[in-house]
Nucleic acid binder design. Structure first.
Length: 374
DNA sequence: GATCCGTGGTG
DNA sequence: TCACCAAGGAT
């Protein structure tokens, strides 16, 4: 008989035993999380999206606020996107909020508000991929669908002592996840797997002595658990200096603009500005950018604040200056929309984190200098 | 398949 | 201080 072509990394492991020991561990040591207290697919969907690339402790207050404000998919579908983004403000990856809003429309429009149970239909919703779909369907409906999130990649990479970074072996890891999943207890199994990765099989200093899979884990048995999973390649972050304008007109109103709907910080509001080119002063940059983007002449006055901020693929240094409107009619040339607002009205608009520091600085200055022109 | 997309915690 | 990273998906 010919050797099996697809011999798996799991061939020597007792999968039934692994399932039982993990579920036993989960019954004793699983986490009590807000979205596990019910099986409403809408609430579980919201939690799964918020948890993408985001820590549990960060998500919990956002999750609670969201379910209070938008208790049902109909509430979300009927909401204004700006209000959705405002509720998401500070959580990052804002496409997630835009996709939630769009998918709510899909669910209400195509499925009468009933969350679909079919994997292909769930994955067709905006912002839902294979892992999120598996998470929702297994948690809400106890459907036997595997997942492969960051926790699961780490746990299985160690279990099979994977010799390459997980991104180089996704088909193998999905195969492991499919074969290990307990078809009789998919809900608890998937949750247990994520809890194991989050609390025991952690990135740094995993607590192997508490792990139910210790005896089977190939990394543990080789003593390589601290170097697996292997690191992904990473490139140095580029750095940009940005000139930013807080422009006031003669009435003291402040100019803000809304960024294009897609791309970085899509749909959020900001103070206008742009990249400082080589050989250009900050003041020159700000005057040029405002003329290009908004079409008005301004006077660049005193420095308000400097903000250093790191995004995923680059860092910025924001040089923020108080400016005064001089001439021309402001219009949205390189943005979606512009508005002149008061400092009080600004609270309504969703801003990226780095811009919230500018608003704080403006408020502090307004309080500290009552005679200042506000 | 490589790149883009935020923010806060951490060693 | 700073690179790395944490419940991924879209293009």
């Amino acid at each position: 008989m010919a050797p099996r072509k697809n011999s798996s990394a799991l061939d020597d492991l007792d999968i039934v035993g692994l399932r039982r020991s993990l579920l036993d561990w989960y019954a004793r040591s699983g986490r009590d999380l807000p979205w596990r207290r019910q099986t409403d697919p809408y609430a579980i969907w919201i939690s799964e999206i918020m948890l993408q690339q985001t820590r549990v402790t960060t998500v919990i207050p956002y999750y609670e606020r969201w379910l209070t404000r938008f208790p049902t998919v109909e509430d979300l579908a009927a909401a204004d996107l700006q209000d959705v983004l405002k509720l998401w403000e500070g959580l990052g990856y804002y496409a997630r909020a835009r996709n939630l809003h769009a998918a709510a429309g899909q669910i209400v429009g195509e499925y009468g508000g009933m969350f679909p149970r079919d994997l292909d239909r769930v994955m067709a919703l905006s912002g839902i991929g294979r892992t999120t779909a598996g998470g929702i369907l297994s948690l809400a409906f106890n459907a036997p669908i595997s997942i492969l999130d960051g926790n699961v990649k780490r746990v299985y990479s160690r279990l099979i002592a994977l010799e390459v970074p997980p991104s180089k072996a996704l088909p193998r890891l999905w195969n492991v996840s499919d074969r290990c999943l307990d078809p009789d207890n998919p809900r608890d199994f998937n949750q247990a797997l994520m809890d194991l990765g989050a609390t025991v099989c952690t990135r740094h200093e995993p607590n192997c002595l508490l792990c139910p899979w210790r005896e089977s884990c190939r990394a543990y048995n080789k003593g390589t658990q601290s170097v697996i999973p292997m690191r992904e390649e990473s490139n140095p972050l580029p750095h940009k200096r940005i000139g930013v304008a807080v422009i006031r007109d003669d009435r003291g109103l402040i100019l803000i603009d809304r960024r294009p709907a897609k791309g970085l910080l899509g749909g959020l509001w900001e103070f206008p500005g742009g990249k400082i080119e080589d050989g250009e002063t900050v003041e020159e940059c700000i005057r040029r950018e405002i003329l290009e983007e908004i079409g008005i002449e301004i006077e660049v006055n005193d420095h308000l604040i400097t903000i250093d901020h790191a995004y995923t693929h680059f860092r910025v240094n924001l040089q923020v200056y108080n400016c005064r409107y001089l001439s021309g009619e402001a219009r949205a040339i390189e943005c979606e929309e512009i508005r002149w607002v008061t400092l009080a009205e600004i609270e309504i608009y969703p801003f990226p984190k780095a811009n919230l520091q500018i608003i704080e600085a403006l408020k502090a200055r307004a309080v500290g200098s009552p005679g200042d022109r506000v």
